[in-house]
């Protein structure tokens, strides 16, 4: 078996004595998408932020391409340069135009020559239908366009893996589709992804594996279709029933 791109081993994390992650184990193989589902507060965002070293873990290990990156001796910037994250609220830089938004990190953090970064940025914008928006500021874009820009910004650094934290939760329902379309396309292009989402239909379609998180633990995991359509654990069944009641899958 090949080495997974991301491996989470027994990770725990507490915020002020409040346990948020209670021993998470998880692997993301190259070119696969692992989707985390679970109720609000189950720890999905926290885990993603731990992987990106934006938050320190208490116990366990996180490995990127076999290297333990949660060692205190590891330079977090080097790790973050090989990962990319997209957030629920886009977190675009409001004072930066779309094209610069995308080329900032390649130029400043990855030392890619400006011409090259600009050319690549333009190609990405064109590929995702935003070519005519390169001179706009984020607040001139719709929510769906903003999140697509955030996705492009994330992949412009050619990350080993993409971390997506509920990237459609802040969008109007009619804008969700265009953003998920981008993710599907990235998946087909072979991007390795760890995704937190409340979109069950999307989880079922795009996931190679679905993990159900409950109170900081992976309670159940399985293939996308089987997990969403035929959950085994009572907690998973309860959660999915709730989701089905409130949203059309």
């Amino acid at each position: 078996m090949t080495m997974p791109v991301l491996e989470i081993r027994g990770v725990t994390k507490a915020f002020d004595d409040k346990p948020v992650l209670q021993g998470i184990d998880l692997k993301v193989e190259e070119h696969t998408a692992v989707v985390m589902i679970g109720a609000s507060g189950s720890g999905k965002s926290s885990l993603l932020r731990c992987i990106n070293l934006l938050v320190d873990i208490d116990d366990g290990d996180i490995l990127l391409d076999g290297e333990v990156v949660t060692d205190p001796t590891v330079d977090p910037q080097r790790v973050r340069r090989s990962l990319a994250m997209v957030f629920q609220h886009f977190n675009l830089f409001p004072h930066v135009r779309v094209l610069d938004q995308i080329t900032l990190a390649p130029i400043k953090a990855h030392g890619i020559p400006k011409d090259e970064a600009v050319e690549e940025g333009r190609a990405l914008l064109a590929r995702f239908g935003l070519a005519d928006r390169e001179r706009d500021y984020p607040d001139q874009l719709s929510g769906g366009q903003q999140q697509r820009v955030a996705l492009i910004r994330a992949i412009a650094t050619r990350p080993r893996a993409l971390l997506l934290d509920e990237i459609t939760s802040a969008l109007d329902p009619e804008l969700v589709g265009e953003v998920l379309e981008v993710v599907r396309e990235l998946k087909e292009g072979g991007m390795t992804m760890l995704i937190a989402t409340h979109e069950m239909a999307f989880a079922r379609d795009v996931a190679d594996e679905v993990c159900f998180l409950h109170q900081g633990r992976v309670v159940e995991r399985g293939l996308g279709r089987q997990m969403i359509e035929d959950p085994q654990e009572p907690e998973t069944q309860k959660f999915l029933a709730r989701m089905l009641a409130t949203r059309a899958v």
Partner: peptide, 27 residues
Amino acid sequence: VHPGQRGAALAVGLSRAQAMRFVILPQ
């Protein structure tokens, strides 16, 4: 400046100083 801005700047691989210089200070 919203803390998410710093998180996003670090997440794309900028150093702390670069995040300050290019993302936080201008805002």
